[in-house]
Nucleic acid binder design. Structure first.
Lengths: 395, 395
DNA sequence: GGATAATATTTTACCAGATAAAATAAATAT
DNA sequence: ATATTTATTTTATCTGGTAAAATATTATCC
């Protein structure tokens, strides 16, 4: 049964990445027989996960034979919520099964750090508020996925530590099942963005790639052979806290020399503060503006961040040798990390092989990147759930 | 058939890690049925890979029931050669199927860098020489495995670059099959040591661990979920060339700031040279001696290497979150990398989680570490080959 | 010392899941 | 209308694993 499950999911996954594809093409792409695909797609249709495209006669002009029937995700079948908890508030997005947004909402938070029960209560009310927008209730959701900054063991909804939560080592399974009326999943926010790149973004169809997220901190999601790699204790991929300098700059985490302490938003603002030219709420966008209008010090702050970032990325390539590295961020605020000089730094740090460097792709998401990431993970988890149910009910 | 293959190999692998184990125990350990184990072990016995232990009645005293029959590797069934090509010469070891040494030999090399055909010819004569010691010929070997320093794509015996070879990007498949009269495999030397740790060493039974090799350079083998991770192009795990300092010390590879340029043998000797107190052929052991007899400068050279090494290891833990890190070397010449201060540095660089730090194990091998590593890989590849043959011949 | 119980392994009958081959469906070309 | 081509479904098998029954081998109990 586990085997069958996996086959169904593989077919579903392939339909998702291809968008619309015929049974024959699935069979040849997955190196399996048409009979198996017929069986699998029949099940997936029964579960409401996919559907046949109505518009008949897609037969290529001048091509004989029975035309292929295209299959695609059944977008309207399920609604999934993605949440990202940040200090300013909770971003929520509702998406259909294809990942298209149907509603979004920003829930304010009184305090950036909450107890576990406050945390779950906030999630619940953010969820209710958003569902109300489309005249639905949280009960109607097929799943909810929650992204938090910090160290999370996603397999057991266990949070070692998060900047949003006052207590350490909390198992959220019970709290969530009590207070959220649908299946709920948690993970580290960078992992979720990696999931989004894999399902909908620049990682579509790739097997082995890394997603680096840049914003306040620097995060990493590792996808190896199509799977998110999480490490033994569920707390790997802490790229932002790899050390780039012995006893270097002080980081938020309390340690010294972390990459994040040179590249994260707060690090840049801290540097600008040293120059004395800082006002209350300076942002990285402001630093960009200054640099562009000729401020040498601002330019130098950005440039050094880029060099350190490039060093870090070259280390990732040296260790993982991935197909591709995707740099993802919400705004245009990380342009300084994608310059030719940064690329040169990366190149000069990667061990020299006569094979092309892994492609480095840049993805500028909008504000909802993190929430969309959570939604992507939610869609994947719901798929797994539905397939499991389906087979459990097949006698 | 592929599935059956995998089952056979899983059983064989379990027998190897346990040493001697009964069918029942295999079944429960691998979560499979006794019937399957009976079938698998029958096949493995037919292939000469395992055998039943003769000594009957191992029944525990006072325990009723039919006693278990223990199974173990059939040590005498196959001979495998492991080779390590270094600048001083080629180390060869012949092992039985359990990995026990039956002969070893050090083949001198006139020149440290050879053309591909010279390279293969040297391997052949080193092999012949060693086999002669036990009155055998290279034809009698079940497989030969060759380790080289450099960038190797093991899946296709392709060497991007190696310090032992004058040309780049050589596909050795044809050369090897023409000049070596038995199946031959190549890989990066650090990967091979990781294989040895997995099959015979401190990684026995572990799923996810890293092996750091220290000697002239610094190497890394990555084992994830029981498999060697090699990256997309087959050239990942270049730990020695991850950068620990922006525009830092010059490395053999021509780049700056590589970890190896602070930790490798040549880096220490270079540092000592700066102090002016160097003779022709100083070794790391000499530096240790001096440090122990109170030479502050020698102590400081070793201490800095340790700190940089610790920084690198903490980065590995932050990225991979493995079960365990094994530091492997040939001599006692890396004691300075295993001190309490180094451990403290590692600890101070790993992101703080309330879960135990991955265990850090130190493995002092003898001189033949690299060759034994190659042999381990050879044994694994021969196992795969034999199982494949077996099933191909089962009608 | 034979009956009984306990435990390991093998055998047998069967099940699950994938597939080859045949059948069917749906189009174009003649 | 008929033949041809291609896609999908159905059916009969094949593969690999497993539950249950059978068998093997021991200890323990009268």
């Amino acid at each position: 049964m586990e085997q069958r499950n996996a086959t169904r999911l593989r077919v579903l996954e392939h339909i998702r990445t291809k968008g619309a594809v015929s049974r024959i093409d699935i069979a040849s792409a997955l190196q399996t027989s048409p009979a198996t695909v017929t069986a699998a797609t029949a099940d997936l249709i029964a579960a409401g996960l996919i559907k046949e495209i109505e518009s008949e006669a897609i037969s290529a002009p001048g091509k004989r034979g029975r035309p292929r029937v295209l299959l695609q995700l059944d977008a309207k079948s399920y609604i999934v919520a993605g949440l990202k908890v940040a200090r300013q508030g909770i971003s929520v997005i509702l998406v259909d099964f294809e990942g298209s947004e149907t509603a979004s909402y920003k829930h304010p938070l009184e305090k950036p750090r909450m107890s576990p029960s406050e945390f779950v209560a906030s999630i619940r009310s953010a969820l209710d508020e958003t569902c109300a927008q489309i005249g639905r209730s949280a009960k109607d959701l097929a799943g909810v996925s929650i992204g938090v900054a910090g160290l999370v063991d996603a397999n057991r909804n266990f949070v070692y530590w998060s900047s949003s939560i006052t207590e350490r080592n909390i198992d959220f399974s019970n709290l969530l099942s009590r207070h959220v009326p649908c299946p709920a999943f948690m993970d580290n926010d960078a992992n979720l963005v990696a999931k989004a790149e894999q399902l909908f973004g620049l990682g579509k169809g790739l097997k082995t790639f890394l997603v680096v997220t840049v914003e306040h901190g620097v995060g990493l999601g590792i996808v190896l052979d199509g799977q998110l790699y999480r490490g033994k204790r569920g707390c790997g991929a802490e790229f932002g806290h790899t050390k780039v300098q012995l006893d270097g700059a002080l980081c938020q985490c309390g340690q010294r020399g972390c990459l994040e302490a040179y590249v994260g938003d707060y690090a840049l603002i801290r540097e600008m503060a040293v120059t004395g030219q800082i006002n209350e709420a300076m942002t990285v966008a402001d630093i960009h503006d200054r640099a562009q209008s000729g401020d040498q010090r601002a330019a130098s702050v950005l440039s050094r961040a880029g060099q350190i970032f490039g060093l870090g990325v070259s280390n990732l390539i040296n260790l993982f040798d991935p197909e591709c590295i995707i740099v993802s961020g919400t705004q245009k605020s990380f342009e300084h990390l994608c310059t030719d000089k940064v690329l040169a730094r990366i190149r000069s740090g990667v061990v020299n092989v006569d094979a092309a460097l892994p492609e480095i792709k840049v993805h500028h998401w909008g504000d909802l990147m993190w929430a969309k990431g959570a939604a992507a993970y939610g869609i994947e988890q719901v798929s797994i759930l539905k397939v499991r149910e389906l087979i459990a009910n097949t006698p």
